[in-house]
Each structure stands twice: as C-alpha cells, then as structure tokens.
Simulated assay, not measured.
Amino acid sequence: MFLKKIVSAAALVALLGSAAVHAEKLSVAATPVPHAELLELVKPVLAKEGVELDIKVFTDYVQPNQQVADGNIDVNFFQHQPYLDSFNKEHKTKLVTVGLVHVEPFGAYSDKIKDVKDLKEGALVALPNDPSNGARALLLLQKQGLIKLADPSNILATSRDIVENPKKLKFHELEAATLPRVLPDVDLALINTNYALEAGLNPVKDALFIEGADSPYANIVVTTEAKKDDPAVKKLVQALNSDATRKFIEEKYKGAIVPAF
C-alpha cells in the first residue's frame, strides 16, 4: 500500500510537471499604459487556462508591429486600426486585427492656456508625426474650428491639407512618445492618451478638448494571418473582452479610457 502511494504521488508530480511544460507561451508587445496594465490584469486568468503570457513593453509605435511581423513576438496590443492600416501599407506587412478592447479619447493639452479660446495667433502646436495619429490630431483641431481641411473626413490628412488656418497656427510634428515632454515649449500639444497617462496627465480633467467616447479609434489586438486562429490568441482576446476587464477599465481610468466591447 505504501509503495502504491509513492507511485501515485510520483505519477501526480509527473502529470503536473507535464502540464507545466505544455503550458502554451504567448508573447505580447505593448506600450506601458494602459496596455501592459490590462495585460497584467488578465495574465493570471490566462495562466489558469494554460496560457503563459509574456509581456514585452515598448515605448515606441514601430517595433511592436515590426517584431510581430518578423515572427519574434506573437501578438501586439497598442494601436488603432488606422495606424495599423498605415503601417501595413508603408512597411508592406500583412498584420491583422483579432479584437477590439478600448478607446483612448485623443486630447489637446497646454501648460500655457486654460481655454482653447485663449490660443493666440501664430501659436505653436505639437502633433504626432506618424500619419494616422497626425491626421487624428488635425481632425480634432478641425472639430474645434481652429483649422479646416480640404477633405474633412480624411483620416490620413497632413498639415499640407489645411485650407483654412485663421489663427495662423504653426505645427511641429514629433514622435508621439515625446509630446508630453515638450508641453512647456509649445502652446498646445495633441497627445495620445496612453502617453498622457504615463506623464501623469488626466485626460478627463487636464485636456482642453478631447474626442468623444464615440471615437472610431478603438485599440486593437493584432497578430499575423498565421496566428489569427490560434487558441491562445483567442483566449487572450476573450480575457481582454471580459466583464472583469470592463469593470477594471471603468474603475481605474474613470472615463480616460472607454471599453470598446
């Protein structure tokens, strides 16, 4: 009987060891806030489902896509569809969307004025330098009546498409991650919410104006055609689209980020 118990115990240890060995690893590239925070939230949930989540944090908007396209990382979570479309076109990649998670309403910030009405003629405005977010910033400025674009709905508009600029605003295009740091040097900066949050800015309280919750720029989970139907990828999307994730978003970010599922 004692020998049988030892054998049974050994079998159990072997079984558990085998399960651990066969836990599927899934690497995900993400920017720190809120993407990596949301991934950390669902990491233990996925572990219970046999998926070991390996979160790789990046601070730029290029490497997360390039690493997935090159097969070094399985999935990324940091961008919206217009940015992905632009990236695929520019870099001749074929990355695909497998799920929507949240909207980060894009906002305008200033250290120099408290109301957009106080923006002076010739003011210096900082914009993201990537095509999709640069256009998103211009569309938001247009919505405020500060400029007018040749095509009011062009999601890839550039400053060259401005046909009316009554305040003679000057535009300075910079890498999105650097925009919070230049706030003291410009009159207005259009900043992605993830970078605003990282810099301690509260989009709901600190933005002079901001997109509505109906923004079409939902943040997405992205992978390759080869991995889009992978069970581990599907489990990740399900976890990010869960009621627990929705509650976390609503309670932690208090309107600065809005669930898109």
Rank of each mutant, 00 (worst) to 15 (best):
I55E: 07
Q142S: 04
D74E: 11
R136N: 09
I73D: 11
I155Q: 01
A30T: 13
Q144R: 03
T245P: 07
P82W: 04
A199D: 10
G122F: 00
L12F: 13
R160F: 11
E173H: 07
A196V: 10
F2W: 07
S18K: 01
G71K: 15
V51G: 05
V258F: 10
E173C: 02
L84Y: 12
P184K: 14
L174Y: 14
H80P: 03
E211I: 06
D111E: 12
A69S: 15
D243W: 06
T31N: 15
K254S: 05
L3N: 10
A157D: 02
L197Q: 07
P231W: 13
Y61E: 10
A23R: 03
L12K: 06
A218M: 11
K148M: 01
K205D: 13
E40P: 03
K117P: 01
D185F: 13
N65I: 06
L12Y: 04
L100V: 00
T97N: 15
D130K: 07
T158M: 10
K228T: 12
A226G: 05
D54N: 12
K117C: 00
P105E: 06
A108S: 13
P216H: 00
V258Y: 13
A137V: 04
A177E: 14
N88R: 06
K56Y: 11
G145H: 01
L127Q: 05
Q79V: 14
Q238R: 14
A256S: 14
K5Q: 08
L138H: 05
D161K: 08
V163L: 05
D161M: 08
L201P: 09
S215F: 06
V237N: 08
F77Y: 15
L149N: 01
D151Y: 01
L119N: 00
V182K: 14
N65Y: 14
A108K: 03
Q66E: 11
A47T: 04
S159P: 00
V222P: 15
E211Y: 04
Y61D: 12
A108E: 10
Q67W: 13
V258L: 11
L95D: 09
Q67F: 13
R136F: 03
I249D: 08
R181C: 00
L146Y: 02
D54L: 07
P180T: 12
E198Q: 15
K143H: 04
P34G: 13
G145I: 01
L41G: 04
T158V: 05
Y61Q: 09
E164P: 07
P32L: 12
T59D: 10
R160V: 08
F58D: 14
V28Q: 11
K254T: 04
Y61K: 12
F87S: 05
P105I: 02
P82V: 05
H35S: 11
K48A: 14
H102V: 07
P216Y: 01
P180D: 10
D206E: 10
G212Y: 02
A19G: 02
K89N: 05
K234I: 09
A9M: 12
V21T: 04
E225Q: 15
V51R: 09
L201E: 09
N192A: 15
N88I: 08
R181N: 11
N202T: 12
A20N: 09
L39M: 08
V125G: 00
L190R: 03
I257P: 06
G145P: 06
I249E: 04
L141S: 02
D230C: 10
G212C: 01
N219I: 05
A126H: 03
